[in-house]
Design a protein around this nucleic acid. Structure first.
Lengths: 151, 151
DNA sequence: TGGATTTTTGCAACTTTGTTGCTTTTTTAA
DNA sequence: TTAAAAAAGCAACAAAGTTGCAAAAATCCA
């Protein structure tokens, strides 16, 4: 075990924030870290719970908006009025997200995952409709929960 | 023009509510009518605006929930924290929706449409993931707005 | 048809979620 | 180190959604 376990990660995170043209602050580092150590997507209230009382609610809203604007995270549609966010692994530029992957919502653990390897299909539309972006949300049971059931 | 223009429709709506096992009330008739005369999907606040002060906000929430439960309407996912609803044209039973169509969100008029003829594609998932439902949301410019631009 | 029973509505109060303006604090860059 | 710029915190508010309960309406059946 190294004595500089966390400072290593912190430096990485700080660097990656700078590279995106953002100033490095405690809340941004913390929220970025939460996304990185999280397998699934996070909602605003997830972050609020995980971050404890460390930050003001408003700061979290503003940080999420900033991350969205800079192409660091993307919003995942849902039908239950709670928007979730996840890190962009693709090449997202400020103001323009470029995602081809699909999202999976697990009805058992209620987590949302980006399936980065599954490419969104092309959809044939009726005459007159001009597509710009395709979001696919699959609901079912995720890998973890399927495995857990068996054992 | 017939003198019984609306009573005709009202009877139809009442009948269809009864067929679903629901008692017929003013708010249910009105909200059902709004969905029927609407091309796109409706959010809670859309309904609130269209219905004016006729009904309590809570009644609208409860009516939407009832319609969802009975398979009369379905919820459409979105990434902007406002859930929209549309009539089910498919064979939806209480407690079980069966939709194969995709949804189209127009970035110009901000309406959401069900494209009933476009079937959701089958998605190949990684080993372990069990799909139960697929939602496809395409964003772009709809038929109406494309046409309107040209003229 | 009339009245008892069941269901739905309206109201009030409350929780959660999201927004805005302004002041103080922190970060950045010279 | 310090001035300028950016972000955080705070307060106050707006919007969205929920719950319990009493009044009103719809349904059912004699």
């Amino acid at each position: 075990m190294s004595g500089s376990k966390h400072s290593n990660k912190t430096i990485e995170i700080g660097e990656s924030l700078k590279r995106k043209g953002l100033s490095v602050t405690d809340s941004r580092k913390k929220i970025m870290q939460l996304f990185m150590q999280q397998k699934g997507a996070l909602s605003h209230s997830d972050i609020e719970k995980k971050a404890g009382t460390a930050f003001d609610r408003v700061t979290i809203y503003r940080t999420l908006q900033t991350f969205l604007d800079k192409g660091i995270i993307h919003a995942i549609p849902s039908a239950d009025a709670s928007v979730r966010y996840a890190l962009c692994n693709d090449d997202c530029a400020p103001g323009h997200h470029e995602h081809q992957h699909i999202h999976f919502f697990c009805r058992q653990c209620h987590q949302t995952f980006c399936l980065d390897d599954i490419v969104t299909p092309s959809i044939g539309l009726p005459r007159g409709y001009q597509p710009q972006e395709v979001d696919v949300l699959v609901k079912g049971v995720c890998k973890n929960c399927t495995t857990a059931k068996k054992s």
